[in-house]
């Protein structure tokens, strides 16, 4: 795992500052930034406020981890339902302002979560299986979307507490060592070490979990979906003038994954803002028939490639 310090309480400001820079650099993304950055900032605030993993940490079984069994494979995350009122109060009003077409349903959901018989368990379940939950006045699609946005920072906060348990495990899998989900984003990071030999300029490649944002090191030349390592069937797409943002494309499984090459950066941009900046690249990849390894909230509705 990269040795980054835990996010400071200024995480929301960091996101907004990176978004302001992106807006200056790519004005065409302004409308998407206006929609999603307030939500991302609200999520960062919830991540700071949330209690995280409560009680004793799960037992760490190194043998099972080394054999490829992720940490929460037998138990899953702790129930997020008790924290949903906090997340709803912070995130749903922001979402309602960002997505006016959904405002009525989001307001209804917020009202439902405030009541004495709040369907907390149902909404928590909707984050993972939207079709199995129902809240009056809220469509399954909107419920799933809103529930995922509320659940994400709560799960990330739990995962942050669990990260030390997998920190020094030589995990080189394509799924998260904490929760087992797929990566939605990758980064090339230069990691400072005390080695007295020449180190590569490109840094190590880290995959970032779509659900809990845990990061783990992975091979640089290997598809994080199918494991293809044939150089001739792995390629990179990037936009002119922004070589540090790229899509790693696998011709073997027709999948792409977002990658931010941080080797040249002074300050590492927030991963969510970096992912948002790659929306034009994602559109190009979809047009060429590639599918995302995991869709981002802003790219989920892009046209799916023909089967």
């Amino acid at each position: 795992m990269p040795s980054e310090t835990a996010p400071a309480p200024t995480a929301s400001r960091h996101i907004e500052a990176d978004a302001a820079r992106l807006r200056r650099e790519v004005p065409a993304l302004s409308s998407v930034i206006d929609c999603f950055v307030p939500v991302l900032a609200a999520q960062a605030g919830v991540r700071e406020e949330a209690p995280g993993w409560t009680g004793p940490l799960p037992a760490r079984d190194e043998a099972r981890l080394c054999a490829g069994e992720f940490l929460l494979s037998g138990s899953g995350f702790q129930d997020i339902a008790p924290c949903l009122p906090l997340a709803a109060a912070r995130i749903l009003p922001v979402m309602a302002a960002s997505f006016p077409a959904l405002a009525r349903q989001l307001t209804a959901l917020q009202a439902a979560l405030r009541g004495p018989d709040a369907p907390l368990a149902a909404v928590a379940a909707a984050a993972f299986s939207p079709d199995r939950a129902a809240v009056p006045g809220v469509s399954p699609e909107v419920l799933g979307f809103a529930a995922r946005q509320m659940a994400k920072p709560l799960l990330e906060r739990q995962a942050r507490d669990l990260a030390p348990l997998v920190q020094d495990i030589p995990w080189r899998r394509t799924f998260c060592p904490v929760c087992g989900d797929a990566p939605a984003f990758t980064r090339m990071l230069r990691v400072q070490d005390e080695a007295e030999y020449i180190t590569g300029h490109g840094g190590h490649r880290f995959l970032r979990c779509a659900t809990c944002e845990t990061e783990w090191r992975y091979k640089r030349i290997s598809c994080p979906k199918c494991g293809n390592e044939e150089p001739a069937r792995l390629s990179v797409m990037h936009a002119e003038g922004r070589p540090f943002e790229r899509l790693d494309v696998c011709e073997a499984c027709n999948t792409y994954c977002l990658c931010l090459d941080c080797a040249e950066f002074i300050a590492i941009p927030d991963p969510a803002i970096a992912a948002l900046a790659m929306l034009p690249l994602e559109m190009r990849a979809r047009e060429q028939g590639y599918a995302p390894l995991v869709a981002q909230p802003w790219s989920a509705s892009l046209e799916r490639p023909a089967a």
Binding site: R21, D193, T199, E264, I266, A267
Partner: peptide
């Protein structure tokens, strides 16, 4: 020009020894 664009100075970027 690079630093204003959040990029490391070239001498730093090129240093393989840290």
């Amino acid at each position: 020009d690079r630093v204003r664009a959040n990029m490391l100075p070239m001498c730093v970027k090129s240093c393989a020894m840290g």
